[in-house]
Design a protein around this nucleic acid. Sequence first.
DNA 1: GTAGTATATATGCAATATTCAATTATATAT
DNA 2: ATATATAATTGAATATTGCATATATACTAC
Lengths: 197, 197
Amino acid sequence: MGYTDLKSPNVPRDLFLGNVLGAFSRALCDKMDRAVCAATGRNTTACYAIVQIGSEPGSSIEVLRRMLGLEHSSVVRLLDRLERANLVNRIRGTECDQRKVCIFLTDDGEREFTKILDARREVLDRAMARLNDADKEFLLSLIHKLMPEVVDCGDDQHIVCRLCDLEKCPQDRCPVNLAYPDNMDIVEVPFKRRENF
Amino acid sequence: MGYTDLKSPNVPRDLFLGNVLGAFSRALCDKMDRAVCAATGRNTTACYAIVQIGSEPGSSIEVLRRMLGLEHSSVVRLLDRLERANLVNRIRGTECDQRKVCIFLTDDGEREFTKILDARREVLDRAMARLNDADKEFLLSLIHKLMPEVVDCGDDQHIVCRLCDLEKCPQDRCPVNLAYPDNMDIVEVPFKRRENF
DNA sequence: GTAGTATATATGCAATATTCAATTATATAT
DNA sequence: ATATATAATTGAATATTGCATATATACTAC
């Protein structure tokens, strides 16, 4: 059944494809979230934070805020919890700025970090299991076309990578970066988790 | 830059593609979520509920629970809030089961429903704007290969469609359904939103 | 070098969403 | 007729989050 077969007037082609693409993305995100939560027994916010801290040890709270899409104070509270669970360490002050806090994973935290990335990779590997090499090549080229319209310049650039295995992500080929190759200034895009009802 | 060019040992091809696919899905979901929240001033849970009730008027709380991945009692509270906001009506009892509650959108609710689907469609249309017909056809075939490994049998089948414009989704062509064509019995798959820390 | 402003972090407080356990009413099966 | 299962609800407890505010440090202008 080809895409162009869908010509019925009550089922506009693009709307159908949009539904499918939206549902697939949703399914994949759900599955990754569930996998990492199950692997660690923690919630998604904690998992995202552990990944970010593990990927960029010494991150400040401000950097984390951007990655997680939370208020600054919420990140402070999140770190309180992670510290209490013995997963992260705060170290006050850098050589150039005494206000900043550098955040690192403890050994326990490193173990969680590995568990999270493994769980995520397993989901992605399984998802792509039926693709052959040609499929994979085409998928990558499709994402290169899709990504620029989906990632806004600003905090978005960081947030979307919040579960990425950054060590394995060559920055110069990452579609997120390629969408904004000239490293333009970061525009703040607030991302609210909670809205008043 | 083709997919098969990525042969460097420290950047395994599939891991990179997995990162990219994961980040893209994340970006798209974030963008849809943000769009529908901005369009309504409500949170994601409320938006998902409005879509489901609008798509299947008369749904019971149990059906909603499955679609939203919440506890039954959480859905009750959610409906309390939506009812207070004058978006839904509860009608007690069906002809065959007096225990059930049928949930409908009010006129205000219908307006929100439309706003949500419009906002979502705009995001998806924009995302696909750079694709030509051949791209679209290939994308659909790719998703057909990807979906079965991503959607588990059970509640998942319902949850992933939680923002779909179901009226525009021909059930017999939906990749989610095609992954489970024989309509097997639904297996309960609990989906925890909150985990203890 | 001092004053004023901006930035980074932290804390008090309140609101919200969510779960768990228990309750009530109806339906189904033995 | 009784026991069991299902559907919805309610009360109590908790976690997460945001807003407003406070404090310490850095930067800038004069």
